[in-house]
Amino acid sequence: MTDTTETSTGILGTGIREGLLLKPVTYPWAMELYDQAVANTWFPNEVQLGEDLGDFDRMSEDERHALTFLMSYFNPNELLVNKALAFGVYPYVNAAECHLYLAKQMWEEANHCMSFEYVLETFPIDREAAYNSHVEVPSMAAKEEFEVRFIRRMTEQTLDISTTEGKQDFVRNLVAYNVILEGIWFYSGFMVALSFRQRNLLRNFGSLIDWIVRDESLHLKFGINLILTVLDENPDVATPAFADEIRGMILHAVEMEEAYNRDMLPNGILGLNADYINTYVRYLADRRLEELGFEPEYGVANPAKWMAAANDTLQLVNFFESINTSYEVNTRADS
């Protein structure tokens, strides 16, 4: 592919000489997200996790396995997102307002990592087992390997962000860490984490996850806006072949998540089994595909409509209906 014109007037660039003046703000959506993120600032110890210890003692082995599995995945991957931002996004963005948001997001990822440490410190979870399983469980390691591949490319000196190939590498990394890792895989985990509260268990842990979801929903908005802006400003990027590749990445990510969820819930726990979660994963993937301008792939309804509680409405009852009907998928129109 051929080189394109200088991108110093757009959102992409080396981000060193150009991103030093905040005004005029070129991308007001980034400032809006920054303001909201600052307003959302919270600290993990504001949640009294210790009050959930009684619940933890009453949980079954399968439930504890699921919780440990989640901690094992979330904890290092919050830091992996920071690597993706530091190596693959921040250096290639020109706009100061984007840098402001990215700096806040990176602190939030650190705060999330510390939140999961707080969970590990509070609950009698085998830390060594938790730390090790993200290395030793193949389905979990495969997800990390997928992410690292795209981050590593962003650190190579041969990457030139002014070329079509360089911009495509930038978008690939964004899709991998933002759309897939944060927008599908994390949300799948959040659903499992919040399912405990739906059964009146680990309510404070649920509050902690609420705060994290609130941050992550902003991360997702920022990433999608960034991708769409890059595509809008650089019409050379979205070739049919590249579009097919991006779509294929997302579909492959769904397959990986399905294998991971089968490892997390080999026997199922009350109200949840791997099929239920994987239907939710497919629902999420369709939403992410649509946000990127693709047609949905799976056409499934959201089985966990109560997850809308992560945003602004409560759907507790639907969750319990699903228990009573043996994981029946709720086929009513989504909210």
Partner: peptide, 9 residues
């Protein structure tokens, strides 16, 4: 020993 005191400002 914990990795942090987990104190907020």
């Amino acid at each position: 020993s914990p990795v942090s005191t987990f104190r907020s400002p």
